[in-house]
Amino acid sequence: MTATPPRWTVEQFTVAADTSTARFRELRMQEPLEQYLHSYEDHRHAVEVLLERTVDLAALHLRAPEVLLEPELLTAVRFLASPFISADDLKTVAQTTLSASALRADDWAGARRVVDAVLLGLDRHRFPWVGEDRPPTDAEREAAVVATASLAATQSVQTARRTSSKDDQEQRVADYLVSRGFAQVPPRAMASVTDLPAPGEFCREALFGSRKADLVVRTRDGRAMPIECKVSNSSINSVKRLNNDAAVKAVVWLQEFGHLVALPAALLSGVFKVANLTAAQDQGLTLFWEHDLDALGAFLDAAVP
């Protein structure tokens, strides 16, 4: 008899979700402050250098060709605005890329547009002296440096956290699969069953049908389990990551490969609402938890010829 993927009751989802949320809280409380402090010092130095080279921003246009070519100073320039301007938004608003060649083009016209875009959104509370056309006081300069470095460091840490959480989760799943005797193979596009890894193999970051999966596992009985790794920091965020992404992919994969071949799954960590978990499961998505990888292992052990 073919092994059936686990389906969880509301009570089981409730216990698992509570455990996952508790682990999320513990992780967030234990995250070292050093990561932020190190980032803050780096950004503080960049802001100080930027103010020094531009005479407290009075010569920002004049110094644009110099400061915009240094990545750290370019980041500091983006955080002069409030809210800060992302690199992608700045490219759009300034109608240029941020490459050295683009900034140099047409006698630095692109660089001037970058500065114009930033100054248009300049935070007047942090840099009051610019609009008043005067030098800053020592206290104003220090307050501006501290506030700007703090904003940049916070954003940097948050971005790194989102990226590393997902990457770490994928790596843990990959390591676990290897520990269960599965072999990792290079990724490939899988348009049909003939493109799948061999039974007992898996690959990462692969196109499964028309949608990319974080991992694709070929069970030993020949079925394919595309796995999406999802880390959520709130129940609202979980709707986007689980229901609007992973569950939608599950429906597509089942249509493309059929229920006899495809076993869409998601590996979860963080905060999820029970109602959203139930809805995703009802759409054909098998759910596992990062804190209980042995449930995944038990199914894979049972899925044999």
Rank of each mutant, 00 (worst) to 15 (best):
G209F: 13
L196K: 06
E205A: 02
R180S: 02
F182N: 02
Q184P: 06
F208V: 15
T194W: 08
P197I: 15
G209P: 02
R172Q: 10
R172F: 01
F208W: 15
A174Q: 02
A191G: 14
F208P: 06
R172A: 13
R172P: 03
V178N: 02
M190Q: 14
S210R: 13
G181I: 00
V185S: 10
A206Q: 11
L207I: 05
D195N: 13
V173N: 10
S192Y: 09
G209N: 12
L177Y: 02
S179W: 05
R180Q: 12
F208Q: 07
E205P: 00
V185G: 05
M190G: 00
A206N: 04
C203R: 08
G181R: 01
E205F: 01
A183N: 02
A174P: 00
L196Y: 15
G200T: 11
V185Q: 05
P187D: 06
E205L: 01
C203T: 14
G209Y: 14
S192I: 01
T194D: 15
G209I: 12
V193D: 15
D195K: 12
T194H: 14
D195L: 09
L177C: 12
G181C: 01
L177P: 04
P199Q: 12
A198V: 06
V173M: 06
L207P: 03
P199M: 14
P197R: 15
S192G: 15
R204W: 02
V185N: 05
A189D: 11
R188D: 11
Q184E: 15
V193R: 15
S210L: 05
M190K: 03
F182G: 04
P199I: 12
D175A: 12
D175W: 04
A191F: 13
F208N: 05
P186E: 11
F182K: 01
R204Q: 14
F208C: 13
R172T: 05
S210F: 00
A206W: 07
S210D: 11
L177S: 08
A189W: 03
P186A: 11
G209A: 11
V185M: 10
E201G: 03
R188K: 09
A191E: 13
T194Q: 13
V178M: 05
A206R: 06
G209C: 05
G209Q: 08
R180A: 02
A174D: 07
F202A: 04
P187N: 08
R204M: 13
D175Q: 08
T194N: 04
F202G: 13
A183S: 10
S210K: 06
C203Y: 08
D195T: 14
V173R: 03
V185K: 10
V185Y: 10
L207K: 09
P199H: 13
R188V: 04
A189C: 02
A206P: 09
D195E: 14
R204T: 14
V178K: 09
V193G: 15
P187E: 04
P186K: 07
G200M: 03
F202N: 10
A191L: 07
R180E: 04
E201V: 03
R188G: 06
Q184W: 01
G200I: 08
V185C: 09
G181P: 00
E201L: 05
S210E: 06
D195V: 11
V173A: 07
V193N: 13
S192N: 14
A174W: 00
Y176H: 09
S192V: 03
